Amino acid sequence: MKYIITIFIAFFSVASFAQQITYAQWKKDAETEINLIPEYGNLPKPKEMIAEDQKLIDLAIKTDGTSHKASEHLVSLGFDYLYRGDLKTAMKRFNQAWLLDNKNENAYWGFGAIYFSFNDYDEALKQFEKGLLINPNSSNILTDEATINTGYFVSKHDANYLDKAIELFNKSYKIDPLNQNTLFKLSVAYFYKSDCANAWKYYDECMKLGGKSISPGYAEALKKQCNR
């Protein structure tokens, strides 16, 4: 149990950062700021906001060439702000990405990442599922959804969540076998499964690519549980 708790903390610490707002304050602000709600809450917008949206669309397409490229650019900016802990600006960029291309699954990846950062995993999963409906082969979304299922396994002690996580991680791995985040977390999932052969397999693959995603302490725990 000690190793499970230790690795669980390391598992989620990879994407940790200092937030600039609490979830309670976020939800309060979202009552009056619709750009803090995914898809703007599908609520009516004031004329001023509609005019600003059109200016954004025109400028973004002029700059990036197409609405999809502009949308991807805004998703990238959104994640930049998210990693700095500026979740409000991040959500605004993800909403603008959705505005430019509501079929861009990565906008929903961004929405889910916001809720993930607040530990609202149920809402994060809802957003990830919307993204996967658009693109079932999104490696990034599959890995993040698998991450949440691994967390549910640890907190709820239900092996079904671990099986689901491994299924999702493997699907993501087949799509992008060079994603170190996926490789590390797939190794951890098999570690929880007590499948030492696969835990070492994906750990080694991750290390060959640099091992940047591997959390401190994981190698020691793996050696103790899966001596080779």
Results as ranks from 00 to 15, higher is better:
147 T>F: 08
161 Y>Q: 09
135 N>M: 07
154 V>T: 11
139 S>H: 12
146 A>F: 03
161 Y>S: 07
157 H>D: 15
146 A>V: 01
154 V>H: 12
159 A>N: 13
144 D>G: 01
135 N>S: 10
155 S>I: 08
134 I>H: 13
156 K>Y: 08
149 N>M: 11
149 N>V: 09
149 N>G: 01
151 G>E: 05
148 I>L: 07
165 A>R: 02
136 P>M: 06
145 E>C: 03
141 I>G: 08
140 N>E: 13
136 P>C: 03
140 N>G: 12
157 H>S: 15
154 V>G: 10
137 N>D: 06
164 K>W: 10
155 S>M: 10
147 T>E: 08
145 E>F: 08
160 N>H: 04
151 G>V: 03
156 K>H: 11
149 N>H: 14
151 G>S: 01
152 Y>W: 13
162 L>P: 03
153 F>C: 12
154 V>L: 14
165 A>H: 06
140 N>T: 09
161 Y>E: 00
153 F>D: 06
142 L>E: 01
152 Y>K: 15
137 N>E: 01
135 N>R: 10
147 T>P: 05
153 F>I: 05
140 N>R: 04
153 F>S: 05
138 S>V: 09
146 A>Y: 02
150 T>V: 09
153 F>N: 04
148 I>A: 05
148 I>S: 03
136 P>L: 00
159 A>V: 13
162 L>E: 12
154 V>A: 15
160 N>F: 06
157 H>R: 15
159 A>L: 12
156 K>E: 15
149 N>L: 07
155 S>V: 10
154 V>C: 14
152 Y>A: 15
138 S>Q: 12
160 N>P: 02
160 N>S: 13
141 I>H: 05
157 H>V: 15
137 N>Y: 02
158 D>A: 08
153 F>L: 13
143 T>D: 03
157 H>C: 11
163 D>Y: 02
152 Y>L: 15
144 D>V: 04
162 L>K: 04
156 K>D: 13
154 V>M: 10
147 T>L: 08
154 V>D: 10
152 Y>D: 13
160 N>Y: 08
149 N>T: 09
143 T>H: 01
137 N>V: 02
137 N>I: 07
139 S>T: 00
135 N>K: 10
141 I>Y: 02
153 F>Q: 11
134 I>W: 14
145 E>Y: 11
159 A>I: 13
158 D>Y: 10
154 V>Q: 14
146 A>I: 00
162 L>W: 06
148 I>H: 00
147 T>A: 07
139 S>A: 11
141 I>N: 07
153 F>G: 07
136 P>G: 02
156 K>A: 07
157 H>P: 04
146 A>T: 00
151 G>L: 07
158 D>P: 15
140 N>I: 05
157 H>W: 10
144 D>Y: 00
165 A>N: 07
152 Y>C: 13
135 N>W: 02
151 G>K: 05
148 I>G: 05
139 S>F: 02
162 L>S: 07
143 T>E: 04
150 T>D: 12
152 Y>G: 14
139 S>Y: 06
157 H>N: 15
154 V>N: 09
143 T>M: 03
159 A>H: 05
144 D>W: 00
163 D>R: 06
135 N>Y: 00
